[in-house]
């Protein structure tokens, strides 16, 4: 599978990664190579094999419906780039 520069530009935008226009061509080539390499898996017959989600037989761990965390807004906000009182503050977004 080959990616073109438009696809790479779009993926970069969705991931909020700034990619200079000049690098798109190179990245498209590299990403296409990776995809082509992974595509080798298509050669394996997997029609009758159920998807494997874990290498060991474990089931999804669950928690009880108990409140055991909270009231640490200062810790939560400690690394925030900006705050207004006990809120995170971000540039205005309106819709």
């Amino acid at each position: 599978m080959a990616l073109d520069t438009d696809a790479v530009r779009q993926i970069a935008h969705l991931a909020r990664v700034r990619v200079p226009e000049a690098d798109l061509e190179v990245l498209a080539g590299e990403l296409s190579n990776i995809l082509t390499w992974v595509e080798q898996l298509n050669d394996v017959a997997t029609e009758d094999v159920p998807a494997m989600t874990s290498a060991v037989a474990v089931s999804l761990p669950m928690r009880e419906d108990k409140v055991n965390e909270g009231d640490h807004e200062d810790a939560i906000l400690a690394n925030a780039p900006d705050r207004v009182r006990d809120f995170f503050a971000v540039p205005k977004v309106v819709d």
Partner: peptide, 16 residues
């Protein structure tokens, strides 16, 4: 394990 109650003080019901 953070609480769901409505109307609490901001960011007091937030887990890591």
């Amino acid at each position: 394990g953070a609480a769901t109650e409505f109307g609490a003080e901001p960011n007091t019901q937030v887990s890591l």
